[in-house]
Design a protein around this nucleic acid. Structure first.
Lengths: 338, 338
DNA sequence: ACATTTTAGGCAATCGATTGCATATTAGAG
DNA sequence: CTCTAATATGCAATCGATTGCCTAAAATGT
C-alpha cells in the first residue's frame, strides 16, 4: 500500500481530467457536473486523499489557524476560555494553536514570533504577569493581523478586548465582607501592575471609602498571588501583629494559602477572620470552610472573545473595528465569609 | 508604512540579486559571501521580513508542527506533560498544536483529521475515556506519521508510549491502606475500560489478595470519576449500608466527592474511613484532611514522551522504532489515610 | 438551419521558499 | 600566459491547491 502521495493530481491522472477540475469538484464548485464530482469523490476516498492544508494556505494566504496565547492552560479560568474559543473556531473550520507564556515575558515574545511565522490568521491573547512592554503586540497590529485580548489587557493598546469588571467584582466582594462585619480588611494584590490587579485594588479601596472605612496601607500587601505568597503574606501579618478581621485576595490560590496558615495558627475562619478570593477556581468549593470568591464568567468570556475575533476577521479591513466588552462578575458566597 | 509583502523576493529586488541568493543567505549557506549575507540580513530587518513558514513547509514537506491531543488541558497532569513536551519541542524549533478531545470520541477523530490536514510532522496523544476504537490512530500510523502515546494507551496499538505503572501505584496505595488498618476497602473505578483504570483495578485486587483479603465485588463501584461520581457512589454505599473502612479511588476528583459526602454524614476521615486518591492534583493538598494520593510523574512523562517522539521523528524511517517506557509512581501520604 | 447561451472543463499562473544544475568571475597551478 | 579549480550567484523547477480566463461542446432560441 504505497503512499504515492494522494494529491489532486493523483486523482486527476486516474480520471484523465485536470487538477483544476478535481479541485473544483472537491470544493463543490457548480461548474463541475455531478457525475464528475461523484467520480472524484470516489477516487479521493479510494486513494485516501487528504487535502494539503499547507498548499491551500499558501495559495490563499489564509492558514485557518488562530494563535491563542495564555499564561497557562492549567487554570480553570483559562482552559474554560480556551474551550469557548475552540468551540466556535472549530465550527467555522478554524484550528487553534495554544501557546503558553508561563507568565514569562520572553516566552510571550517568542510565542508571538512563532505564531507569526506559522502565519496564523489572527491572535487571541491574555498577557503574562510580567508583560509591561507591548512591542510584540504592536507588531501584530502593524501587520494588520486581527488581535483580540481577554482578561489581561492594557489600555495603551487600542485593541478589541473582553474583560471582566474587576473593579466591580472587588467592590462587591469587599462590600460583602463589610456587611458581614469586617472592618480591618487585608488586601492581597500582585506586585506587577496589570490591569486586573489595579482594578481590583481600586474596587477594594472604593468599597472601603464608600462605607466610611479608611484605607490603611498597612493592610495592602503584595506578592505573586500563588499559594506560597498567600502563606507568606499571612505569616508576616500575624508576625507583625497586624490587626485584621478579613482578607480580600485578588487570587484564589493566595487566599488558599492564607486559609492554611490561619488554620495552623488556630485562628477561626470565618469566626475571627473572613476570607474572599477571586477566580472561582474549582478547589475553592473543596476546602474547609469553602471559600467565597468572585466568578470570572470564563465561559461567556471565551464565547464573546471568539465572536469578537471572528467579527474582526470577517470585517474585510473596512475599518479596524475595536470592540470592548466588559462582563459582570458574580460573587459566589460560601462559608469562609459567613 | 505599507506591507508590500516582505518576501525574499522583496529583499532580492532591493539588492539586485535573486531570491535564491537571499534564501541561501538567510539560511547561512556557506556558498554565499559574508558580505552578501550581511546586506541581506540588514534589508530583512529593515523591511521587517518574516519567513513564511507555510511556503517552506510546502516545499520541504515538513511543517515543524506537532499535534498534541489530550482529553483536557485543564488538569494538572496533562498540562504538566504538555509543558514538558513544549519545552523540548520549542528548543528544537518545533511548535505544538494542542487539541482537546474533552473525552469525546468524535472530537478525537475530528482532531486527528484536522491535525492531519494541518500536515503536522507527528502526533502525541493521550486517549479520551470513550475511545475504544482506534481506526483514527491506525490511519496516522499507516500514513507513516510518527505517533507517541502517553498515559492512556491501548496495547492493541503497537506504538511507542510512555505510561505510568498504574498497577504498581494502585498496589502500593492499597497496601498502604491495609497497613493503616483497613480491611474493607472500596474501589472507585471508571466505567470505560481504559488501560489506566483496568491496571489500577488489577493493582487493587492483587494487593488485597496478597494480604489475605478477599476481593468483594460489592466494594468495587463504577462511575466517570468526576467529583459528582465520587459523591454519588459514596452516597449509594452509605444508603445501602455497605460496610467499609477505606476508599481507594482511581481519581482524585472522585475521592474529593467521597470526602465531602463522608464529612456531611459526620463520618470521620481518617478515623472511620481512610482515603487514597490517584493523580496528585494540587487541590488534594488543600483539603481538610489533606488527601493521600499517587503522583503520576507528569514532568518526567512529558520529558520522556517528547524525547521518544523526536527519537522516532529523527530515525529516518529505517525501522519503525517502538519504545515503551513505564514510569514508577510515587505514593504521597497525607492526612486522609493516617 | 444558424446564432447565441450555457455547461463543463482545460490552461497556466500564483502563493513564497528551496535546491539541483548551470554559469560567470576570480584565483591558483604549471 | 593558458588551464583547471574554487567561489559566488543565477535559473528554473518544485511543493499542492486555487482561480481568472479561455474554449469546446451541447442546449436553446427563432
Amino acid at each position: 500500500m504505497k503512499n504515492t502521495k494522494a494529491t489532486i493530481h493523483e486523482i486527476a491522472a486516474k480520471l484523465n481530467i485536470t487538477a483544476s477540475t478535481v479541485s473544483r469538484a472537491l470544493n463543490n464548485n457548480p461548474r463541475i457536473s455531478e457525475e464528475t464530482k461523484k467520480k472524484v469523490l470516489k477516487v479521493a476516498k479510494q486513494i485516501n486523499y487528504q487535502p494539503n492544508h499547507i498548499a491551500s494556505a499558501l495559495r490563499s494566504g489564509k492558514s485557518r489557524l488562530i494563535g491563542v496565547i495564555v499564561p497557562t492552560a492549567n487554570r480553570n479560568f483559562f482552559s474554560s476560555v480556551i474551550r469557548g474559543i475552540e468551540d466556535l473556531a472549530n465550527n467555522l473550520n478554524y484550528k487553534i494553536i495554544i501557546s503558553q507564556s508561563y507568565d514569562e515575558y520572553d516566552k510571550e515574545v517568542q510565542n508571538i514570533e512563532a505564531l507569526l511565522n506559522a502565519r496564523v490568521d489572527g491572535i487571541i491573547a491574555s498577557f503574562g504577569k510580567m508583560t509591561d512592554n507591548f512591542d510584540h503586540f504592536l507588531k501584530v497590529i502593524e501587520k494588520g493581523i486581527p488581535l483580540v485580548l481577554f482578561d489581561r489587557t492594557a489600555d495603551v493598546l487600542n485593541v478589541s478586548h473582553v474583560i471582566l469588571d474587576d473593579y466591580l467584582g472587588a467592590y462587591q466582594a469587599v462590600e460583602h465582607l463589610i456587611k458581614s462585619g469586617c472592618r480591618r480588611i487585608v488586601h492581597f494584590t500582585n506586585i506587577q501592575r496589570i490591569n486586573i490587579y489595579t482594578e481590583r485594588k481600586r474596587g477594594y479601596e472604593d468599597a472601603l471609602k464608600a462605607n466610611g472605612i479608611e484605607v490603611d496601607p498597612e493592610l495592602i500587601v503584595y506578592g505573586s498571588m500563588q499559594l506560597e505568597d498567600g502563606r507568606r503574606l499571612t505569616e508576616e501579618l500575624i508576625e507583625k501583629g497586624v490587626d485584621f478581621d478579613g482578607i480580600f485576595s485578588s487570587a484564589d490560590y493566595a487566599v488558599m494559602g492564607a486559609l492554611q496558615v490561619l488554620k495552623s495558627h488556630g485562628i477561626d475562619v470565618p469566626g475571627k477572620v473572613k476570607l474572599v478570593g477571586f477566580g472561582n477556581e474549582p478547589f475553592t468549593s473543596f476546602t474547609d470552610p469553602t471559600i467565597t470568591t468572585v466568578d470570572q464568567k470564563s465561559i461567556a468570556m471565551g464565547k464573546i472573545t471568539a465572536e469578537t475575533f471572528f467579527e474582526i476577521l470577517n470585517s474585510k479591513e473596512t475599518e479596524p473595528i475595536s470592540k470592548k466588552t466588559i462582563l459582570k462578575p458574580e460573587l459566589i458566597i460560601r462559608d469562609s465569609s459567613k
